[in-house]
């Protein structure tokens, strides 16, 4: 049996710790109408999200938004060529997920990993929360390759465990939350 070559190349090792540029993920700031839709979708009736009098009397002093709501805001900008149409013109059986983008690198995205291991499975999430974003806040994010490790499966196949860290801040520079997501590349 021949020893498989390592997939953790020097080029990939050099990416560990590399940060992308900090970008604003909000388009028009934190909006009440989107918040209403979001909290219904997570089935959370907490009056801190919608009852101004109750929220004002709470320790937060204002309406707040759910712990990691600010991590879902990086959406298609108005005026952008419709990415869904572009994706399906290129591939009629597009899965609509990652492939629904325009194919262009988004601002704030990390450089792509150059590896033949292209299948990506979500291995887990790690979340730290420091402050709930407020309505009207502008939200900024900055991504980093926190870690890339290689593992060998029981069948001898190699895989890469890639951990991306994203820090979310508001317009005052206050740290709101940190998310780390690990993906298995095989």
């Amino acid at each position: 049996m021949t020893q498989q070559q390592s997939y953790l190349t020097d080029e990939l090792k050099a990416l560990i710790g590399q940060e992308a540029e900090k970008v604003e993920v909000t388009i028009w700031g934190m909006e009440k109408e989107n918040l209403r839709r979001f909290v219904h979708a997570i089935m959370d009736p907490d009056p801190l999200y919608w009852d101004e009098d109750y929220a004002r009397a709470s320790k937060y002093g204002e309406i707040i938004t759910p712990p990691i709501y600010c991590t879902y805001l990086n959406k298609t900008r108005p005026g952008t060529t419709d990415p869904i149409s572009v994706a399906f013109q290129r591939n009629p059986v597009n899965d609509g997920g990652a492939g629904a983008g325009s194919g262009e690198r988004r601002p704030g995205a990390l450089p792509p990993l150059r590896t033949p291991l292209v299948r990506n499975l979500n291995a887990g999430n790690d979340i730290e929360v420091f402050k709930f974003p407020s309505l009207g806040d502008r939200i900024f994010s900055q991504q980093k390759y926190a870690d890339i490790q290689e593992r060998v499966g029981r069948d001898g196949s190699h895989m890469l465990i890639v951990t991306n860290e994203t820090r979310y801040t508001n317009q005052k520079g206050e740290l709101l939350c940190i998310t780390r997501s690990s993906g298995i590349r095989r």
């Binding site: 989107n34 839709r37 979001f38 979708a41 899965d95 609509g96 997920g97 629904a100």
Partner: peptide, 13 residues
């Protein structure tokens, strides 16, 4: 579907 629409996740699965 309500969640996918709320966060604009268009992954067909």
């Amino acid at each position: 579907f309500r969640w996918s629409a709320a966060i604009e996740n268009w992954h067909r699965i």
